[in-house]
Write a protein that binds this DNA or RNA. Structure first.
Length: 816
RNA sequence: GCCGAAGUGGCGGAAUUGGUAGACGCGCACGACUCAAAAUCGUGUACCGCAAGGUGUGAGGGUUCGAUUCCCUCCUUCGGCACCA
């Protein structure tokens, strides 16, 4: 049965056969043992599919195939995150409408994805830029609005001057636009927000039960930034204005010596109104605000302040505290006003700069060192002769003192325990064209009203230019305004902003479960069966069993999706809080150390290599590069090794299999291989799975002929990794059915125990020889034998053995 | 500065609870086949040394009969955060 191996022909053949037989179609309703395998859906950019996509999707598919062979009803989803800036920027450059370019890119990418031979059930594909999809994005907005979770407010927001749109906090990385790298500035604008802060504690608590990478959980925890401390109510002297302050280091209680307020705090004006300080202070506030707006504020060089002339009225019986406006204080954390002490780096530096008094609470007592000794030992002292706290606190360490002091503060009634979070509300509106229109209209008085559901999808108008002007492009659409007036009345205006694309991707895992039922364009989603998600399917399939994607989404998509799922749960739409039970991040593929991107022109296309070697070889090569979660720098050296492996497998199975030949001696190796491959795939370490198969091949090739059983088992092990090749070999072996529908082989434990053991012999921790002993030899026998080993003997001559250690089945260690 | 991950041959990487470091593959060298080359197959390949032997998992200490694995200090690289009192 000798024949040549031609990957492309084989791969095309089996993709067709699978397709015809519908082996990857899943009946979501009938599935008995659902397994929802999902990779983060791609953005259909002009780059097409690059090696990074393959690196993500191919192993994800191999793992899903393994689950299928374990007997699960696997649903592997695929779709497109099609709204967003790149298509719009492309349109600005070329004049091609995003609708057009996205359609083309999606078509190309589907073709490329199909070439990979993954188990995607294409009937359930989603594309977020289609009205069928974005009506649900809009519906979600209305849900949020009706639950009071969507609101509009004027605030300083992150503005990208290049993309001419606002950005969510999560989209600003190191002060730069996450998309284009431009310095982000602050701009006061009226924007739509979603109240993710209401869910801060739940988002934090939920993490502990998730099977997610620890580092991702840590990133989310830091992002949420829960801080515990004490709130105090204070008064401005002579003005009687009451305000709250938050203090997260209660150890400094009664040791505060001044107060600082944020330059853009609304109370600043009231403090200085009509005083000699007014002009100067307000000018200072404006100066700092400008610096911050330009994104140029740097705490190290720009630590500045100015005295307001006002005091906090003796908050703790230790005297009045002067209030300064200080550049480093932020308005929107805590209450924007802070009581300062010696034991904070910034407060300390500020006090030194403006010669403000300090009252340290830690030994040593030198106020010049106060901040530096925070890690120092003993807490509590009375440098100015005033007893600050009860004597019970004396001698406590900084850490020990914390809780008792909070208790003490509460008991004295001066303040109360409080929790603050760093998490801010999610800014969801964007001044761009290519997104889902926000389903809100304004009456002639300018009051917002939700668009009734029957008008969904609230279509994105097409009579729009894309030039970013800083104003929403939708304002140019005559049709959009006419449509609004026609439905709602004269003088009514639509909301011109669109939604952040992260809204689209915050619930797509639910839409996959419904995509088959999506009405045609002509239909409107009004009937009962047309809902965001069928509760029965949701209950059955959610949460997603394994979600695979890049770590760059740790504080964006992955936190938004959790928030939206929780909000939907509270609204009774879904049955649980968390969308992704298990999360895995694939590693990042770089090119000469740099991130692949079109602008750098270093994107590597997989197509030529796939053409040359076939999809199986290419995907195995990517898996063989190293651990899936590590990624690495791109290089195609080494693909040859996998190619050779495939050629040799082909040769062995097509030329050297004889059904009834006796190859009993191969059995232990075969079963060891089953175990190794199984364990490796379980841990998503495809590299070691492949090397185990290579090792077995090396062993098997030494035999003249191998049996049908051995060959079939080997092909089964290869199936998740190289599905097309395996299918062809399965057929050549005369086996029934699709190999991709066979069960995963199991191994016989008893065959894994070797009949002879090789024991290492060490003297003083150095390897001096090995001995072969029967598996049933006694410990004493083995030690005796070890001492008689030739090389060992040499070292034992004239030496006294002080200690003998035998590690079962592994080694003998002698100490002389 | 803070949080996290990682440093092993010329290269990608192996080595589940401490137990024969370098599996598997690339590359390289030599050999076979060939007029020749490619492909393929075989042998070798951590370093020093002719050898006996010694040295080796970023550096330095420590625990242990025994450390890539555990502990301490430090260095480098990568990822995230950075005014949140």
């Amino acid at each position: 049965m000798k024949s040549d191996f031609s990957p492309t022909a084989i791969e095309t053949k089996w993709q067709q056969k699978w397709d015809e037989a519908g082996v990857y179609k899943v009946d979501l309703k009938k599935a008995k043992d659902p397994y929802y395998a999902m990779a983060m859906f791609p953005y259909p950019s002009g780059d097409k599919l690059h090696v990074g996509h393959w690196y993500n999707f191919a192993p994800a598919d191999s793992y899903a195939r393994y689950q299928k062979m374990l007997g699960k009803d696997v649903f592997e989803s695929m779709g497109f995150d099609a709204f967003g800036l790149p298509a719009e920027n492309y349109a600005i450059k070329t004049g091609v409408h995003p609708n057009q370019s996205i359609k083309e890119n999606v078509q190309t990418m589907i073709k490329q994805l199909k070439r990979m031979g993954c188990m995607y059930d294409w009937d359930k594909m989603v594309n977020t830029s289609t009205p069928e999809y974005y009506q649900w994005t809009q519906w979600l907005f209305l849900q949020m609005y009706s639950k009071g979770l969507a609101y509009k407010k004027k605030a300083n927001v992150n503005w990208c001057p290049k993309d001419q749109t606002v950005l969510a906090n999560e989209q600003v990385k190191e002060g730069l636009c996450e998309r284009c790298g431009t310095t982000v500035i602050q701009k006061p604008l009226e924007q739509w927000f979603w109240k993710i802060t209401d869910y801060a504690q739940r988002l934090l608590d939920g993490l502990k039960d998730l099977d997610w990478p620890e580092k991702t959980k840590i990133m989310q925890r830091n992002w949420i930034g829960r801080s515990e401390g004490v709130n105090f109510t204070c008064k401005i002297k002579d003005l009687g204005i009451e305000f709250e302050v938050y203090d997260s280091i209660p150890q400094t209680h009664k040791a505060q010596t001044f107060a600082v307020i944020a330059p853009d705090h609304p109370m600043v004006k009231d403090l200085v109104k009509g005083t000699e300080h007014e002009k100067e202070v307000l000018a200072f506030a404006v100066k700092i605000a400008k610096k911050k707006a330009a994104g140029k504020f740097d705490i190290d060089t720009d630590m500045e302040g100015i005295f307001t002339g006002r005091f906090v009225e003796d908050p703790f019986g230790m005297g009045d505290l002067p209030i300064w406006v200080a550049s480093f204080v932020v308005t929107d954390y805590g209450t924007g006003i802070v009581l300062c002490s010696a034991h904070d780096e910034r407060d300390f530096a500020f006090a030194k700069k403006y010669d403000l008094p300090l009252r340290p609470v830690l030994l040593p007592s030198d106020p010049d060192q106060a901040e530096l000794v925070k890690k120092g030992e003993v807490f509590y002292r009375q440098p100015d002769g005033i007893m600050q706290l009860p004597a019970a606190f004396k001698g406590m360490t900084w850490a020990e003192a914390r809780e008792p002091i909070i208790d003490y503060i509460e008991k004295t009634g001066l303040g109360y325990r409080a929790v603050h979070y760093r998490l801010r509300d999610w800014l969801v509106s964007r001044q761009r064209y290519w997104g889902a229109p926000i389903p809100i209209v304004y009456d002639p008085e300018g009051n917002p009203h939700p668009i009734p559901e029957e008008h969904l999808p609230w279509l994105l108008p097409t009579d729009v230019e894309f030039k970013p002007t800083g104003e929403s492009p939708l304002t140019q659409s005559k049709e959009f305004i006419e449509r609004t007036e026609k439905i709602f009345g004269k003088g009514w205006r639509p909301e011109f902003d669109t939604m952040d694309t992260f809204v689209c991707s915050s619930f797509y895992y639910l839409r996959y479960l419904m995509a088959e039922n999506t009405p045609k364009k002509s239909q409107k989603p009004k009937t009962k069966s047309q809902q965001l998600v069928d509760p029965v399917l949701e209950k059955k399939w959610m949460p997603v069993d394994i979600y695979i994607g890049g770590p760059e989404h740790a504080t964006m998509h992955l936190i938004y999706a959790r928030f939206v799922m929780m909000a939907l749960h509270d609204a009774g739409i879904v049955s649980r809080d968390e969308p992704f039970k298990r999360l895995v991040h694939q590693g990042f593929i770089t090119n000469k150390g740099a991130k692949m991107s079109k602008s750098k022109g270093n994107v590597v296309s997989p197509d030529p290599l796939v053409e040359l070697h076939g999809a199986d070889v290419f995907r195995m090569f990517l898996m063989f590069m190293g651990p899936f979660t590590d990624g690495g720098d791109w290089s195609d050296t080494g693909i040859k090794g996998v190619d050779r492996f495939v050629q040799r497998v082909w040769k062995l199975i097509t030329e050297r299999v004889k059904e009834e030949v006796n190859d009993e001696q191969l059995k232990p190796a075969l079963h060891a291989t089953i175990k190794r491959v199984t364990d490796s795939i379980n841990r998503l370490q495809f590299n070691t799975a492949i090397s185990a198969l290579m090792e077995f091949l090396n062993t098997a090739e030494k035999k003249e002929m191998i049996s049908g059983t051995t060959a079939r088992t080997f092909v089964l092990l290869l199936t998740p990794l190289a599905p097309h090749l395996s299918e062809e070999l399965w057929e050549k072996l005369g086996s029934q059915g699709f190999v991709v529908e066979q069960s995963w082989p199991s191994y016989d434990e008893s065959l894994l125990v070797a009949s002879t053991l090789t024991i290492a012999v060490q003297i003083n921790g150095k390897l001096r020889g090995t001995i072969d002993v029967p598996a049933d030899a006694t410990d004493a026998d083995i030690i005796t034998q070890a001492k008689e080993q030739e090389n060992v003997k040499k070292y034992l001559e004239g030496a006294i053995i002080k200690k003998e250690i035998y590690v079962k089945g592994k080694l003998v260690s002698l100490v002389v």
